[in-house]
C-alpha cells in the first residue's frame, strides 16, 4: 500500500492512535518489555508479531493502562498515560482471552459490560448487545450460559464485548485463538470492516498468515524489544527476495548462471525453474539466459512470505 487513499492519508498525519515512548516493564528480574518505542498510525491495522513471551501482551496492557510501566510513557488516542482512561470509552479491547462469568448467559455477560460503557445510554444497551452478538455470529447461542460455550464461542463473545460501541481503536490480543477456519475468516472480515470504517486496529497474533492477510502495518517483538516495525509492504520489499525464472531448461539455466557468477538454485516449489538469489540485476539475468538459449517463460521478483521475514528477524538476533 504505497499510495494511501486520500482520506486515510489525511488521518495518518494526525496524532497516532497509540504511541509508546521508551516503554519498559520489569517483573522482578525479568524484563518483559525493554524500553520500546512504537507508533500506531490512526487508521492502520497493526499486526503485532512475536514468539510467546516476547512482551506483546505486556505492551498492550501498558498501552491500555492495565499495567503500570516501570519506565517510559504511553499515549492512547492522544491521551498520555496518566489519563489514558479518558480514551478508553473509544477503545474496544480483547486482552488475554475473553473474561466472562460462567453462570451468566452470553447476553447477560455483555449487558453487564455494557452497563459500564460510558458511551451507551441505558435505553440503547439491549440493542447494542444484540447487534454485537449478531456481528460475531453468536445470536443463536446468546441466551445459553457462558459455561457451556465452546472455545470458539467464548472467543467470539470476547470480540463482541470489544465491539459494543463504535470504536476509534480496537485492540485484539490473539483474537483467533481456538477459532475454526470459518471463525478465523469471520475475524478477518470484522477487522476488514473496522478498517474500512476508519477504526485503528491492533492485532497481536502468532498466526503470521492471518497478519499478512489483514494488516497494513507490522511490529515484530523479540525478547521485549522491537526488532522491526513499519508498513507491511515496505518490510516485505526490503527483505531479500531474489528472482524467480520459470523455464523447462533448468540445467542449462543453472550452468549459464554459474558461469556468469550468479548464485542460483533449482526452484523446488511449483513450476520448474530456478531461483536467483544473488548476482547481476534482473534485466541482465534475463538477457544472459536468453543468450544461452534458455526458454524463459516467466521472470518475477520473489516477495518473501511474512513467515520467512519473521524467521529472519527473530532468529537472527
Amino acid at each position: 500500500m504505497t499510495t494511501l487513499p486520500v482520506r486515510e492519508a489525511a488521518r495518518v498525519t494526525a496524532a497516532p492512535a497509540a504511541r509508546a515512548v521508551g516503554l519498559r516493564k520489569v517483573y522482578g528480574r525479568t524484563v518483559a518489555v525493554a524500553g520500546l518505542d512504537l507508533e500506531v498510525p490512526t487508521g492502520a491495522v497493526l499486526g503485532m508479531l512475536g514468539p510467546n513471551g516476547s512482551g506483546k501482551t505486556t505492551l498492550i496492557r501498558m498501552l491500555l493502562g492495565l499495567t503500570r510501566p516501570t519506565a517510559g510513557t504511553a499515549e492512547l488516542l492522544g491521551h498520555p498515560l496518566p489519563g489514558v482512561a479518558a480514551a478508553l470509552p473509544h477503545v474496544g479491547a480483547l486482552v488475554e482471552g475473553p473474561g466472562f462469568h460462567p453462570f451468566l448467559s452470553g447476553r447477560e455477560n455483555l449487558r453487564r459490560l455494557a452497563a459500564a460503557e460510558p458511551l451507551l445510554d441505558a435505553a440503547a444497551i439491549p440493542r447494542a448487545v444484540g447487534a454485537a452478538l449478531d456481528r460475531v455470529g453468536l445470536a443463536h447461542a446468546a441466551d445459553r450460559r457462558f459455561r457451556g460455550y465452546s472455545l470458539g464461542m467464548k472467543q467470539r463473545l470476547g470480540l463482541a464485548g470489544a465491539l459494543l460501541v463504535p470504536r476509534r481503536l480496537v485492540v485484539l490480543d490473539e483474537p483467533t485463538n481456538g477459532l475454526d477456519p470459518a471463525g478465523t475468516r469471520d475475524v478477518r472480515a470484522i477487522i476488514a470492516e473496522l478498517h474500512a470504517a476508519g477504526s485503528t486496529v491492533i492485532v497481536s497474533s502468532h498466526l503470521l498468515a492471518e497478519v499478512e492477510a489483514t494488516c497494513t502495518h507490522v511490529a515484530v517483538l523479540q525478547s521485549g524489544t522491537l526488532v522491526a516495525a513499519g508498513e507491511l509492504r515496505g518490510l516485505l520489499d526490503a527483505g531479500t527476495g531474489g528472482l524467480v525464472v520459470v523455464t523447462p531448461d533448468v540445467e542449462p539455466a543453472l550452468r549459464a548462471l554459474a558461469e556468469a557468477g550468479a548464485v542460483a538454485s533449482r526452484d523446488t516449489g511449483g513450476e520448474p525453474g530456478v531461483v536467483v538469489t544473488d548476482g547481476p540485476e534482473p534485466p541482465e539475468i534475463v538477457a544472459l539466459l536468453v543468450r544461452a538459449g534458455v526458454a524463459v517463460h516467466e521472470a518475477r521478483r520473489r516477495r518473501p512470505r511474512l513467515e520467512e521475514l519473521f524467521a529472519q528477524l527473530t532468529e537472527g538476533s
Binding site: G65, R68, L81, P82, G83, A85, L88
Partner: peptide, 8 residues
C-alpha cells in the same frame, strides 16, 4: 488510570 493524578 493506573497511575493517574486522580489515582494518586
Amino acid at each position: 488510570m493506573a497511575v493517574g493524578t486522580a489515582g494518586r
